[in-house]
C-alpha cells in the first residue's frame, strides 16, 4: 500500500494563518513583549519580569476602574435583559406592525458609536440639550459634566438606548421560534400568563438569552467610545471605565509597560468570565 502524500491542502490554510497572525497573534505578542519589559523609546528594552503585573494588581487606580466597570456592566445587564425581553413580548407577531417594530428596533444599532456619544452629549447638555434643559426646568439639579451621579445616569441611559434593541431582537427571534401548539397546550392545561412565560417561553429562549448576556457582557465590559465622547471619563474619574483608563495610561502617560500588563489582565478577565458563564449555561445541554 502506497499512500500518495499530498500536502496541497496546507496551501488552502495559509490565508487563514496569515490573517489570524496579523489581526490577533502579532499584536497580542507585541503587548506581551511590552508587558515584561521597560522601554525608553528608540527600541531600547530592559527586562522587568513580572514587575508591571504586580504593580497593576496592587494599584488602587486599577481596582477603582475595575470596580466601576463591574458595577456598570452589572447595572446594564440588570436593566437591558428584563427590558429587552419585556419589549420583545409585547411586539406584534404578525401584520404590518412587525416590520415597523423591527426597523425601529434596529435603528439605534446602526448608528456609529461615537455619533451615539456625541448625540447624547448634546442631548444631555444642561443649558441647551433637550434632556438636560427639560430636567433642569422641571426642578432637578442636573449636570452630567459636574455631578458624578448625573454622569452615571446619562451613561447608563445612553447605553440602554443604544443596546437594549439587541436583546429585543434576539428575544423576539427566540419567541418566534416557539410553535403555537405550546401555547395552546399550556392554555388547555389551565396555565396562567406567568406560567407560560416561566415554563415555556423562558426555557425556549434560553439559548438566545445566553447569547444576549454574553454579547452584552463583553460589549459593556469593554465600553470605550461612547463614554469617551460623552464624559471623557469624568467628572474627575467618576466614569473612568477600564478601557478609558487603559488608553489614558498608554497614550496619555506613555506608561507602555504597565498599560500592556493591564491590557493582558483585562483580556484574561473577559475571557475567564465568558468561559465560566458559558460553561455554566451549557452544562445542561451536554447531557442530552
Amino acid at each position: 500500500m502506497n499512500k500518495t502524500l499530498n500536502q496541497k491542502a496546507w496551501l488552502f490554510v495559509i490565508p487563514v494563518f496569515v490573517l489570524v497572525a496579523f489581526n490577533a497573534a502579532i499584536p497580542l505578542m507585541t503587548v506581551v513583549n511590552y508587558s515584561f519589559q521597560e522601554t525608553f523609546g528608540s527600541n531600547v528594552f530592559a527586562w522587568e519580569g513580572t514587575r508591571w503585573f504586580k504593580e497593576i494588581l496592587h494599584s488602587e487606580r486599577f481596582h477603582a476602574s475595575l470596580g466601576r466597570q463591574v458595577i456598570f456592566t452589572f447595572i446594564i445587564l440588570l436593566i437591558q435583559l428584563p427590558l429587552g425581553i419585556g419589549i420583545a413580548l409585547t411586539m406584534p407577531k404578525k401584520g404590518w406592525g412587525v416590520p415597523v417594530c423591527l426597523i425601529l428596533m434596529s435603528m439605534p444599532l446602526l448608528i456609529p458609536w461615537n455619533v451615539v456619544g456625541a448625540m447624547w452629549n448634546i442631548f444631555a447638555l444642561p443649558e441647551i440639550g433637550f434632556l438636560g434643559n427639560s430636567l433642569n426646568s422641571l426642578g432637578f439639579d442636573y449636570n452630567f459634566t459636574q455631578q458624578s451621579g448625573d454622569a452615571w445616569f446619562t451613561t447608563i441611559l445612553m447605553d440602554v438606548w443604544h443596546w437594549t434593541s439587541l436583546v429585543v431582537l434576539l428575544s423576539y427571534a427566540g419567541l418566534n421560534s416557539i410553535q403555537p401548539a405550546y401555547y395552546q397546550a399550556a392554555e388547555i392545561d389551565g396555565a396562567s400568563r406567568w406560567d407560560i412565560f416561566r415554563y415555556i417561553e423562558l426555557p425556549k429562549m434560553k439559548k438566545v438569552l445566553t447569547l444576549a448576556i454574553l454579547l452584552r457582557f463583553m460589549d459593556s465590559f469593554m465600553i470605550y467610545t461612547e463614554p469617551f465622547v460623552l464624559t471623557g471619563g469624568g467628572p474627575g474619574n467618576a466614569t473612568n471605565f477600564l478601557s478609558l483608563d487603559l488608553v489614558k495610561m498608554a497614550l496619555g502617560q506613555f506608561d507602555l509597560g504597565p498599560a500592556a500588563a493591564m491590557s493582558l489582565i483585562y483580556f484574561l478577565i473577559v475571557l475567564l468570565i465568558c468561559w465560566i458563564f458559558y460553561t455554566i449555561m451549557m452544562k445542561d445541554e451536554g447531557r442530552s
Binding site: Q184, A185, I188, D189, Y199
Partner: peptide
C-alpha cells in the same frame, strides 16, 4: 379553554 375540561395532543411532541 382554561375553564373547560379538555386535553389535547399534537402532531409535534409538546412537553414542557
Amino acid at each position: 379553554v382554561q375553564k373547560r375540561n379538555c386535553s389535547m395532543v399534537y402532531q409535534q411532541f409538546i412537553n414542557y
